[in-house]
C-alpha cells in the first residue's frame, strides 16, 4: 500500500503541491488528470522518491520511505518519465540496464517477448536506437521499466507519442502485468476516455491539490 500523508512540496515561495493525502492499494489502477502545471508530474516524482516533500511523509506498506534504501524503494515503485530517455546505443543497452542494477544476467527471452508485445519485433537487440522515432523511444522506455515487474508503476503520459494501435498494445501489456502479477498502476494522462476505460479510480489535480476523486469501476 502506498500512502501520502499531508504532503506539501514547496521548493520556493509558492507550493507546487499542498496538503496531499492519498492512499493507493496494492494492485490498484489509478489515473491522474489535470491541467498542465498543476503538479501531476511532481506528485509522481515524489512517489518515486526522486524528490522529497518539504512537509509530510510518504509510506510504503506502513513504513516511511526514510526507512527504505532508495534503490530498494525505486525497484518497488518504478517511475517512467514523460520524455523517453534512451541509454547508450543499442536496444540491449536499455533492456539490460535493470539487470545491471540488480547485478544479474539480462533475461533475453523476456526482452524479446516485450519487443514483440510492443510492436518492435522488427528490431534485434543490437539495433542502434539513435534514429528511433519518439514513439519507438517511448515504447522502449516502458519495456525497460517492465523487464522486472515492480509493485507500482508510475507512468507520466507514457503513450503521448504513440498512434492509436501502439497505444492499445502498450495498454494491453501493462494491464496484463496488472492482472497476472498484481502490478499497481498510477498513470498521468490527458485522455479522459483512456482514464475512464482502463482505471478503477481517477484523481483530478488542480493548483497542487486533489480537487476531485472518482471511483470508476
Amino acid at each position: 500500500m502506498l500512502e501520502l500523508k499531508n504532503i506539501t512540496f514547496q521548493p520556493n515561495s509558492s507550493p507546487i503541491l499542498s496538503h496531499i493525502n492519498l492512499t493507493i492499494n496494492e494492485g490498484e489502477t489509478v489515473s491522474i488528470i489535470g491541467p498542465s502545471g498543476s503538479g501531476k508530474s511532481t506528485l509522481l516524482r515524489l512517489m518515486a522518491d526522486l524528490i522529497s516533500p518539504t512537509d509530510g511523509q510518504c509510506y510504503l506498506n506502513g513504513e516511511s520511505y526514510i526507512n527504505y534504501k532508495p534503490e530498494q524503494l525505486r525497484q518497488t515503485i518504478s517511475y517512467c518519465p514523460q520524455t523517453p530517455i534512451i541509454f547508450g546505443e543499442t536496444i540491449l543497452d536499455n533492456v539490460s540496464f535493470p539487470a545491471k542494477v540488480r547485478k544479474e544476467k539480462c533475461d533475453i527471452k523476456r526482452a524479446n517477448y516485450l519487443l514483440t508485445a510492443f510492436n518492435l519485433s522488427q528490431y534485434d537487440l543490437n539495433t542502434n536506437v539513435s534514429r528511433f522515432s519518439g514513439g519507438e523511444k517511448q515504447r522502449l522506455a516502458i519495456i525497460r521499466q517492465l523487464m522486472y515487474v515492480p509493485k507500482f508503476l508510475l507512468l507520466d503520459e507514457a503513450t503521448s507519442a504513440l498512434d492509436h494501435h501502439n497505444q492499445q498494445l502498450v495498454e494491453q501489456e501493462i494491464f496484463k502485468c496488472h492482472k497476472e502479477k498484481g502490478l499497481g498502476i498510477i498513470w498521468i494522462t490527458h485522455d479522459i476516455k483512456q482514464s475512464t476505460r482502463l482505471f478503477s479510480r481517477r484523481l483530478t489535480i488542480e493548483k497542487g491539490k486533489i480537487s476531485n476523486e472518482e471511483v470508476i469501476k
Binding site: 526522486l50 534503490e71 530498494q72 518504478s78 518519465p81 547508450g88 542494477v101 525497460r144
Partner: peptide, 20 residues
Amino acid sequence: RMEIEAKLSLGALPHLASKT
C-alpha cells in the same frame, strides 16, 4: 539530469546512474 534520474528511477545507485 533526466538520464541520471531515469536510471535512478530503475533503482540504480548513484555511481551506476552517473557512470556515463
